[in-house]
């Protein structure tokens, strides 16, 4: 029996145990600090539905050995383009959601191909370059949002009539189209079933893909690229495919995030999207070259729990707005922890 516990702990990782302990401690303090556990839990469930897909978009690239996808902001831009064009073309209500998804797809494939082509050129140095490709893309798009000929008054600046607003409310567009769908209460905790189902659908798609022939090839490319090359796999094509897949999921993911959050955030918002997603998947137990769907689910829940419970609990206890600082320390601490682990080179 003792043996089993020991390897569960080793398997689960000590650092994650500390974080889980921290969260349980927060939940224990909840009643003392006057907020109901159920509201906290529904908060976590809600935010899981928003961020799940963004974290899931990390899986294909980690799987195929492209490393942690710090280039997420570039991929999010594809989604934003989809949304803005959909609204510009006058779609409203739930069709806007579907229109946004369909319009975002060609952009996602275009951005994914360019991004994949670049990553193939620089095998080994992906993470650093992905970060700055992401930032360059976002700052370029900022110029784009101002210059592109958008007319629809809902999204254009009121006084100048040129350039998009930074925050666009999608109140009468596709707000809560998924989260609201079949929403139910489970002893006090509201579960946004629609959004979770959407996440489950895409996650199942990924799981299924990894069982197909090309999916298996992608796993092999990630775990030992020379083995895959010797087995006749066109490494660059598989990596390109993984990048396009990741871009598409990220584009869908940001649209899903907006329907939960209620606002479309343009200009400099995507900058800060990469870190939380990377921290979440690492928290779930993924490593720099191995990630599974369960890592995504566990990681997102843990990360969102930290981000949501700490502010409510601590603020009401010692009225100190410390949550923002804790979020920064925890999310970057987890990434740092993963980066300093020795990933055993396939050769060793």
């Amino acid at each position: 029996m003792k043996e089993r516990i020991k390897n569960i702990i080793a398997e689960f990782g000590i650092s994650r145990l500390i974080i889980v302990g921290f969260i349980l401690f927060m939940f224990a303090l909840a009643p003392v600090s006057g907020n109901k556990i159920s509201t906290l839990l529904s908060n976590v469930a809600n935010r899981f539905a928003w961020n799940g897909l963004l974290v899931l978009s990390m899986v294909p690239m980690i799987h195929s050995g492209c490393g942690l996808n710090f280039g997420l902001p570039l991929e999010i831009e594809a989604g934003l383009l989809g949304v803005t064009i959909a609204i510009e073309m006058g779609f409203t209500g739930n069709e806007a959601f579907l229109a946004a998804l369909t319009i975002a797809t060609p952009f996602a494939i275009l951005f994914g191909t360019l991004y994949g082509f670049l990553l193939n050129k620089i095998k080994g140095g992906e993470m650093m370059i992905a970060t700055y490709v992401g930032f360059s893309a976002v700052s370029l798009m900022c110029i784009g949002w101002v210059m592109l000929p958008f007319k629809n008054p809902v999204i254009v600046w009121g006084y100048t009539g040129k350039g998009l607003r930074t925050m666009i409310s999608i109140e009468n567009y596709y707000y809560e189209v998924l989260s609201g769908f079949l929403r139910f209460k489970l002893f006090g905790v509201t579960i946004p079933t629609g959004a979770i189902l959407f996440f489950a659908l895409i996650a199942f798609g990924i799981w299924a893909f990894l069982h197909t022939k090309t999916g298996t090839a992608m796993t092999a490319v990630g775990s030992n690229p020379t083995f895959a090359k010797a087995a006749g796999i066109n490494i660059d094509r598989i990596r390109m495919l993984s990048v396009i897949l990741s871009t598409w999921i990220a584009a869908i993911g940001i649209i899903n995030y907006q329907q939960g959050f209620g606002y479309v955030q343009l200009y400099t918002a995507p900058y800060s999207m990469a870190m939380p997603a990377v921290a979440a998947i690492l928290l779930g137990g993924a490593s720099v070259n191995k990630a599974s769907i369960s890592n995504v689910i566990i990681g997102t829940i843990l990360y969102q729990a930290i981000v949501t419970t700490t502010p409510n609990v601590i603020n009401s206890l010692i009225n100190l707005d410390i949550s923002d600082v804790i979020r920064i320390i925890v999310s970057n601490g987890v990434i740092l922890f993963a980066l300093t682990r020795k990933i055993e080179e396939p050769k060793k």
């Binding site: 710090f70 080994g124 993470m127 650093m128 970060t131 870190m275 100190l320 410390i322 923002d324 600082v325 804790i326 920064i328 320390i329 970057n332 601490g333 990434i335 740092l336 980066l339 300093t340």
Partner: peptide, 25 residues
């Protein structure tokens, strides 16, 4: 090793968090 730049990049954020903890509280 071999991943110095990404790691130093993340360290700067991590330390930024601790710096804010120090300066704000």
């Amino acid at each position: 090793k071999s991943r110095e730049m990404v790691t130093s990049y993340i360290i700067s954020f991590f330390m930024n968090g601790i710096y804010m903890l120090l300066m704000l509280y």
